[in-house]
């Protein structure tokens, strides 16, 4: 009985007693959800346009952030460094297309998936070789990102909103909206969707696969850079981010691999639910539940909807 009370009644009593804490938690969950969604967005872009599950997205985030910080440390002013990083991400996209994707054309998905693993290892080694393995501070102030916090006195309490979090949410929304627009209404977007449907059919109507791949990987690189800046501004730039990137997987599962709005909704659901669970139910089982809660949520959703909440249902024929 006691246990049932602790599980089903007590958390809600706590929520009612301290509404400011609840609002703060909701806000934190929302922000981490946005960041998960940004990482997931990079995955979805590449998956949509080439059918490759890009495991290297996580390390691309780290690599982009490290490049930016590294260039700044080398004496280049912040904004030119940002521009230069974008150029480097373009170079990376071209290199990946030439050296990895082009030779592996028409190979099974699992092979491409494994190739992105190889890419991950390579980039980890390369990044550490160039910039060292230690953690770094993101150059938040130099990039003219807002700092500090807004304190809201509501509900008889105090809710603190970090300005950088607000900026992250705004930037994420803008990116998502523009990507959705590009995918839906432009010529390139149509070509991207055609390539996703069938490489061969797209080639036959004159779409250049190589060009599309470079564009997609470059877009994913820019998304990675934005993610890296935001995430780096919230904590710091380190290779540990790569594990955080795995959290994008349950987000993708919830949203479906092919849906951009799905990635956003999935990110928000995961971010909110894991923060709430950790605060109110986590202490019952020893805490630290953020490590696995997202995956279990994804597992439960999958049991009822095997293609995620927004994914396309795949019809199998013999």
């Amino acid at each position: 009985m006691d246990l049932l009370y602790l599980i089903f009644v007590d958390p809600f009593v706590q929520m009612g007693q301290a509404p400011d804490l609840l609002v703060q938690t909701l806000w934190d969950g929302l922000v981490s959800g946005v960041l998960y969604a940004l990482i997931a967005l990079g995955f979805v872009l590449i998956y949509k346009a080439s059918g490759v599950f890009n495991f290297a997205q996580g390390i691309m985030v780290v690599f982009a952030a490290l490049t930016l910080v590294g260039l700044y440390a080398a004496g280049i002013p912040a904004l030119p460094a940002l521009a230069l990083t974008v150029v480097i991400m373009l170079a990376l996209a071209v290199a990946i297309e030439r050296l990895v994707l082009r030779p592996l054309l028409n190979r099974p998905d699992i092979v491409l998936f494994m190739a992105t693993f190889g890419l991950t290892y390579f980039l980890i080694g390369f990044g550490q070789l160039l910039f060292g393995g230690e953690t770094k501070q993101m150059i938040t102030r130099q990039l003219h990102l807002p700092q500090g916090a807004i304190d809201l006195h509501i509900l008889d309490g105090l809710v603190t909103l970090q300005k950088i979090d607000i900026a992250a949410a705004v930037i994420a929304s803008v990116m998502v909206a523009s990507l959705a627009f590009v995918f839906q209404y432009t010529r390139i977007g149509r070509a991207l969707r055609a390539v996703a449907d069938s490489h061969r059919a797209a080639l036959s109507v004159g779409i250049s696969l190589n060009q599309i791949w470079v564009i997609v990987w470059f877009a994913a690189g820019v998304v990675a850079l934005a993610t890296g800046i935001m995430w780096g501004a919230r904590s710091e730039v380190s290779f540990a981010l790569e594990v955080v990137a795995l959290k994008a997987l349950p987000v993708l599962i919830l949203g479906g691999f092919t849906s951009i709005p799905g990635a956003i909704v999935g990110g928000l659901i995961i971010g909110l639910s894991e923060k709430l669970f950790e605060l109110y139910w986590g202490p019952l089982i020893g805490g630290g539940t953020e490590a696995w809660f997202a995956y279990v949520v994804a597992l439960i959703v999958l049991l009822f909807r095997p293609h995620g909440l927004f994914g396309e249902v795949i019809i199998e024929r013999i």
Partner: peptide, 18 residues
């Protein structure tokens, strides 16, 4: 050496897959 190691392992994985 460790970093080069990672790079070479990664490159070799891609090479073998190709």
């Amino acid at each position: 050496v460790e970093h080069l190691n990672l790079m070479i392992v990664g490159a070799l994985i891609i090479f073998f897959l190709v």
